[in-house]
Simulated assay, not measured.
Amino acid sequence: MTKTLALAGASWIALFAAAATAQTTITGIEDVDDRITDIEETATDEIERSDDPLRYGNPNEQPGFSGSASLSYSGKTGNNESQELSVSTRLRYATGPWVQTLGVALDFAEDDVERTKEDALIVYDANYYFDDRFYAFVLGRAEIDGLADEADEIETDAFIGVGPGYRVINEQDMTWRVQAGVGVSYLRDGLGDSDTEEGVIASSRFFYRFSPEVFMTNDTDVLHSGDNVLRVNNDLGVSFQMSDVLSTRVSYVTDYNEARDIRTDNRLSLAIVYGF
């Protein structure tokens, strides 16, 4: 049997806080176990996020349809009544130079008084490969909050962008691809007022392997919207495969937005996964 121990930032503090305060069952074991699972998933996602399958040229996708789906449901009766339902699916379709991916996640929740969550997330990603270096992309995203009913609440947040991409470097130990294009964002608040604006998007994905156990990534995304607001996100990270059972990643994320009073946010994170 393999067990995984994951550390992410101040995860130990959160873990012991959960053990001391979360007691929704008689022993509280279920709450602690759920919290450990959350910490494991957070650390694992942080490490796996650096593995970009598009870095190395046209990926060898399974021809035709493939994908996965999941469903989670829980319900309570008695002193407190509630229901929670989560549904997600990821579908891929590959044919010739076309590779398309569609992801959908739905979350619903209600208690004995009212509906408390009605969210939908949709992501579409399509790439057409002209050769090993040059490709075209289409990116689409929509986030919908079915319960938004106030002016300061976002009911729909959507974006779609298209453009070309090119792999400047495509070697075994170093890859660099860039892509740029035009896009349109759409915002609709809880009262039905909407705003649509055009923008220019650009992205850079750089990978360098120092050794079989250590590699670095630097991912940059830039969006300049129609209201002359510049937004930049840069994620610099180094991943270490210390042994067959120990992996770690250190990353530094900078997020810049001209529309904010404090324009720059920075985040330093450490993720460690140890299996034994």
Rank of each mutant, 00 (worst) to 15 (best):
T196R: 02
A158S: 12
T264C: 02
G9A: 08
F159S: 08
P63C: 00
G103N: 09
D221M: 09
D112R: 00
I169E: 10
G75D: 10
E46G: 07
N80P: 10
L268A: 12
R249H: 01
T37G: 14
F210W: 13
V32W: 02
E30G: 10
T220V: 15
D112S: 05
D235E: 09
S239V: 09
G96V: 04
S11Q: 04
D34M: 11
L102E: 13
R115S: 08
D173C: 02
D34I: 12
D219C: 07
T217W: 01
Y73E: 14
G181E: 06
V32D: 03
G103M: 01
D33I: 14
P212A: 12
F108T: 09
A18W: 04
N257P: 02
I169P: 03
L268C: 08
E40L: 05
R188M: 10
L223M: 07
Y93H: 03
G64L: 00
S239C: 05
F16P: 05
Y124G: 14
T254C: 04
R92H: 11
D31G: 08
G275I: 08
T77W: 10
A109F: 05
E153T: 09
G199A: 01
D112L: 00
G161D: 04
N266V: 14
R249Q: 04
A10P: 14
Q83G: 13
G199E: 01
V229H: 01
L191C: 06
V178W: 06
F240T: 07
D189N: 10
D195C: 04
D235S: 08
D132H: 08
L106N: 10
I47P: 05
S68I: 06
I154R: 03
V273F: 13
D119W: 02
Y135I: 11
N266R: 11
V238L: 08
D132S: 12
F240G: 06
R141D: 11
Y252E: 05
D235P: 04
A136V: 15
S88G: 14
P97Y: 06
W12L: 15
I29Y: 15
E153G: 05
N228K: 08
L230R: 03
M174Q: 07
Y135R: 11
S74T: 13
S68K: 05
A202Y: 01
D152C: 06
L236F: 00
L85A: 09
F134Y: 13
K3M: 14
T77R: 15
R49T: 02
S243H: 03
Q62H: 11
D33Y: 12
S247D: 13
K117A: 15
N58P: 09
S66K: 07
R209I: 05
E213M: 12
D52W: 11
D261N: 12
E61D: 08
V178I: 13
D195N: 11
V162S: 01
D189V: 03
P212D: 13
A94H: 00
V250H: 04
V32R: 04
I122M: 08
S72N: 15
A202V: 07
I169M: 12
A19Y: 06
Y93R: 01
Q179V: 10
A20E: 15
R167M: 01
M216I: 13
L223D: 07
F108M: 09
A259H: 09
L223N: 07
F210L: 14
S204Y: 09
